[in-house]
Design a protein around this nucleic acid. Structure first.
Lengths: 203, 203
DNA sequence: ACCTGAACACCGTTCAAGT
DNA sequence: ACCTGAACACCGTTCAAGT
């Protein structure tokens, strides 16, 4: 016991196991993670900064996984691809979404991706004092749809009579198909209006 | 002790205290809530269905609080008012947002509000198979911005150099003002594009 | 440097016992 | 019907001890 000659743990091993645990759908926590790694919970604190640290680690990992973003193309192609990439990540690890939501972003890769988005919008012609607002909107949209993927099959569960909601729910496609369609529709709407706004600004 | 002549608890009293606790910013839970009510945790289970039940209770309460929605007006006025009302609720109880996120909605008042939205969009001329998608988009938008309000002051915290993000963050307004502006901009964009889409559909 | 084990202050939920 | 108190199976985190 005590200190082994070759370390049992490493930041990478912890991140891998954490993502696996999250994806398995079992409740996530440092104790559960330690069990999965065959180790004592306190061991993790030699490598990682507690629960929040592990979550931030996953955010970084799962955004690196998403791979290279489009580097050239029109600004709206870049925006669309960035959002689609983010959505793919959320789709691959839906259970991670509720964990990362509302925590300050410090991971360098994630920061870099937002930085690139900001530069792109600025170069496209959006004014300085509007770029961050546009990004906040894109972010709200992406995270909202991320949560949509993490949500239970039934978002609404009407108990009694409804005027139209019940019928539409019954008729509509379910699960990922519904979510995918809504995402693409929303993306189209958002880009349309951004294009229009930019045209007016540049005119 | 044991059973008192006049009950110490009631569903209403629990809901009130729960919202107060959430709004105080202290960690929310059934133990903390019981302490606040001067009662044993197990007592709550006589009135309420555990932690999830209490959270659903708050969702209902805090959407009733939002009060009457616009009943007439154009469809986009109704949509705008519904989203603004939702945002006001989120703004008033930001700490509730992370709690309700991703849990199936059963509260009748909330269901009714979505039902009304669905009817409005249908009457406006959006096709059957698109209404739920539009609502999902509006929802993603609203929840995304709700989380924006619940987020820490600094959403992004760049550690190193950035191309443009750091400068924009320093220049931009902070906190609620930033969030409010982005919300109104996003709402405008969304409504613009929905109007355009509807015009094309009806043409 | 890196792991264990004990300790601490918490959780949410169940259930018998009491009035 | 409605509350308590004990019990259970968990949490996240700290820290001395061991190699």
């Amino acid at each position: 016991m005590a200190r082994p000659k070759v370390p049992l743990l490493s930041v990478d091993r912890i991140a891998d196991a954490a993502l696996e645990l999250v994806d398995s759908g079992e409740p996530f926590g440092v104790n559960a993670l330690a069990r999965k790694l065959g180790v004592t919970p306190s061991s993790l604190y030699n490598h990682v900064d507690g629960l929040d640290g592990i979550i931030e680690l996953m955010r970084g990992r799962f955004s690196t996984e998403a791979g290279a973003q489009l580097q050239h193309g029109t600004w709206h192609e870049i925006v669309a691809e960035t959002l689609r990439a983010q959505r793919r990540m959320y789709a691959r690890h839906p259970n991670l979404v509720p964990l990362v939501v509302g925590k300050t972003i410090t991971d360098p890769f994630v920061i870099e991706s937002y930085d690139r988005l900001a530069s792109t919008l600025l170069e496209a012609g959006f004014p300085d004092d509007e770029v961050l607002g546009v990004i906040a909107i894109l972010d709200a949209f992406a995270i909202g749809f991320g949560l949509d993927l993490a949500s239970p099959e039934e978002i609404w569960h009407p108990q009694g009579e409804t005027q139209t909601l019940g019928r539409l729910i019954a008729e509509a496609p379910h699960g990922d198909e519904r979510s995918d369609r809504a995402f693409e529709l929303g993306l189209e709407l958002l880009l349309d209006s951004l294009r229009g706004r930019l045209a007016r600004i540049l005119a």
